[in-house]
């Protein structure tokens, strides 16, 4: 059992939990993830570790409520327990001196990129972080990112803050301005990572992406997370989750992520319906705490 020490609502549907998990905190490195199962009936889902505190023995996860499991997770509160958390999993980000690194993040990827830029910066890299969101209210961790970057560029789809456009708009501007970028690291929604991959390929800039395929055990046992990289099948859970962006078969990844779309919707609808009923029947119900 893993106790939720604190909970923070970061943006609409985006929540941050600090969870007691001393062994994971002690051994986690940038780029790694955990498998989470909320309760005995829960599924196992991968979530990137967004930070650790070794002294307090805690890890931080940040997630967006998208389907049944993340919505359920989002209903938990401080002091509640999560049944199972396994980690840290996956190969950590390779931390070395690249020169100038453009770290690109979208959605909850913004939280997940934080440990990566911390480590890379400590290694002497110059960090230009580009974060993208649909609008200004969805920008996460702006101050923390700013403190840990040499330069921060914000882009919003609607132009409500920073550059109007996508992260790739900002990245291409930098390149065209003649800023020498030695490596690009991208984490976030698949279409975003794919666009970054396409752009960096055009300009021959090495790029790494952190992939988020469906996983079950997360330890290499089942192959649910297989992705084709450079024509070879790789297991993202044990051989990733980071890969050379230019070699990823993006069409396949997108198709495989939609594998259970209908069933996921069914589960989500059932959850929402039950919770609504539950609310009417029982106003004391714990699941409605903020």
């Amino acid at each position: 059992m893993f106790k939720i020490i604190s909970k923070e609502v970061m943006a609409h549907n985006v929540k941050s939990y600090v969870i007691s998990a001393p062994d994971i905190a002690k051994n986690a490195k940038a780029g790694q993830f955990v498998m989470v199962r909320i309760d005995d009936k829960g599924e196992r889902v991968p979530l990137t570790i967004a930070g650790t505190d070794i002294e307090k023995g805690s890890i931080r996860i940040i997630f967006q409520e998208a389907g049944k499991t993340t919505k359920h997770l989002g209903r938990l509160g401080e002091g509640d327990f999560i049944k199972d958390i396994l980690g840290p999993l996956g190969i950590p980000t390779e931390i070395k001196k690249y020169g100038t690194v453009a770290a690109i993040a979208g959605g909850v990827g913004t939280a997940e990129v934080l440990p990566v830029i911390n480590y890379l910066r400590a290694e002497g890299n110059k960090i230009i972080t580009i974060i993208g969101a649909r609008n200004k209210d969805l920008i996460l961790l702006e101050n923390e990112i700013k403190q840990n970057s040499d330069e921060l560029i914000i882009t919003t789809d609607d132009g409500s803050k920073g550059v109007k456009g996508f992260v790739t708009t900002a990245l291409e501007d930098l390149i065209k301005k003649g800023v020498k970028i030695d490596m690009v690291y991208a984490i976030g929604p698949v279409p975003m990572m794919r666009s970054v991959s396409k752009l960096t390929k055009e300009y021959s800039i090495p790029a790494f992406v952190s992939l988020n395929p469906i996983m079950v055990d997360g330890t290499g046992m089942c192959g649910a997370c297989r992705v084709t990289v450079d024509g070879r099948t790789r297991f993202a859970c044990v051989e990733g989750p980071e890969f050379d962006a230019h070699k990823v078969d993006w069409d396949e990844l997108i198709s495989r992520l939609a594998l259970f779309k209908e069933l996921e919707k069914l589960s989500d609808d059932k959850f929402t319906k039950e919770r609504n009923e539950c609310f009417e029947d029982n106003p004391e119900c714990k699941c409605h705490r903020k």
Partner: peptide, 9 residues
């Protein structure tokens, strides 16, 4: 499923 969260086809 869906009593348990893990889907299967």
């Amino acid at each position: 499923f869906p009593e348990y969260d893990t889907p299967i086809y």
